[in-house]
């Protein structure tokens, strides 16, 4: 399981004076689901193109399954399935015909190809629609057909570029579960890029945060939050009602000040901010119990208390706000 299947060392890609990917180091192990998370224009697609040998890196080295895609793209493409962003099919051909075409491009015999295509259509749930022209497919169906197409060549790695773009929420869940299942069942390494943190969070073993061509952090969610939130890793959300306390707190500012004063005695509380109806209390340790006690004793009503797990939400906002400054049109 510890075999590295993708190795990027010092990878850089420049377009003129613009640096799309900046000295990227990344290793992905066999069998894991890796999520490349970043805002639009962060260089995710460029990195993927370099992995496939579809564009040459300016400097640095790429190894996919131990092969260099710059000198030997065909061998890499035999082992790597790639689902491009916003995948398209020949709309005048049926789903079955489209997949047969791909299978034949992979030098399969007719028998092998038709069996494989049939199985994959079954797997992605498109058997009923196999004879329909892809021009009549919905976005989600196209995406599933794309996944089937990627699997035709029995890939060791599949690379999905923004696979959930344009699918409705229910479809997204279904699609991601399909990917996760395939990865577990067949031991396929999955690299998926996305700008949607929630989706990546759901199925990825590890996540890399990619902003402005640089990988800011990588690891599973736990290590990520440790790395990214070194100062105050705990956030407690509290809903506090002031009606019965007789306090006259006109605005959020005053309320924040008040909560801060109450919690002054609690060790480890760093900052308080109001976010919608809830107060966010940042602490250096897990002080949930003491906070609850302090609030209740102050006379205000505590109607909601939640110790927040660090989700990608926080990571996203914290790091992508910096990314927005150098956002570019893709």
């Amino acid at each position: 399981m510890n075999e590295n299947i993708i190795e990027l060392v010092n990878l850089t890609k420049k377009y003129g004076s613009f640096t799309a990917v900046d000295q990227l180091d990344l290793t992905i192990r066999k069998g894991e689901v890796f999520g490349l998370l970043g805002p639009n224009g962060a260089g995710k697609s460029t990195t993927i193109l370099m992995l496939l040998g579809l564009t040459e890196p300016t400097s640095g080295s790429v190894r996919v399954c131990g092969i260099d895609p710059v000198t030997n793209p065909i061998e890499v493409k035999k082992k790597v399935g790639y689902l491009p962003e916003d995948v398209g099919f020949y709309y005048n051909l049926s789903g079955w015909e489209n997949l047969m075409f791909t299978a034949r491009l992979n030098r399969m015999s007719g028998k092998e190809a038709s069996m494989k295509v049939e199985l994959l259509l079954e797997k992605v749930g498109l058997t009923e629609a196999a004879g329909k022209k892809t021009g009549k497919y919905s976005r989600g169906m196209l995406q599933r057909l794309g996944l089937a197409e990627v699997l035709i060549k029995n890939p060791e790695v599949i690379i999905l570029d923004e696979p959930t773009l344009g699918i409705d929420p229910a479809g997204v869940v279904e699609f991601l579960q399909l990917i996760a299942r395939l990865s577990r069942q067949e031991g396929i390494t999955v690299l998926l890029s996305s700008h949607d943190l929630h989706q990546v969070q759901k199925i990825c073993d590890r996540v890399g945060i990619f902003v402005g061509g640089k990988l800011l952090a990588q690891g599973d969610l736990k290590t990520l939050s440790q790395v990214l939130f070194e100062g105050n890793p705990f956030v407690i959300e509290a809903g506090i009602g002031f009606d019965s306390s007789g306090l006259q707190l006109a605005d959020n500012k005053a309320q924040e000040e008040w909560v801060k004063r109450i919690l002054a005695s609690v060790v480890g509380v760093q900052a308080v901010s109001k976010n919608g109806n809830l107060f966010r209390i940042h602490c250096t340790r897990d002080a949930t119990g003491e906070i609850a006690k302090a609030i209740v004793e102050s006379g205000a009503q505590l109607y909601y208390l939640n110790r927040k797990e660090y989700g990608l939400d926080e990571i996203y906002y914290r790091y992508f706000e910096g990314g927005k400054k150098n956002e570019r049109k893709e």
Binding site: Y82, G88, L105
Partner: peptide, 14 residues
């Protein structure tokens, strides 16, 4: 523009 080109060139063909 159909989005098929990137799909085809990622197949193992020159």
């Amino acid at each position: 523009s159909k989005g098929t080109l990137s799909r085809i060139i990622s197949q193992p063909i020159h």
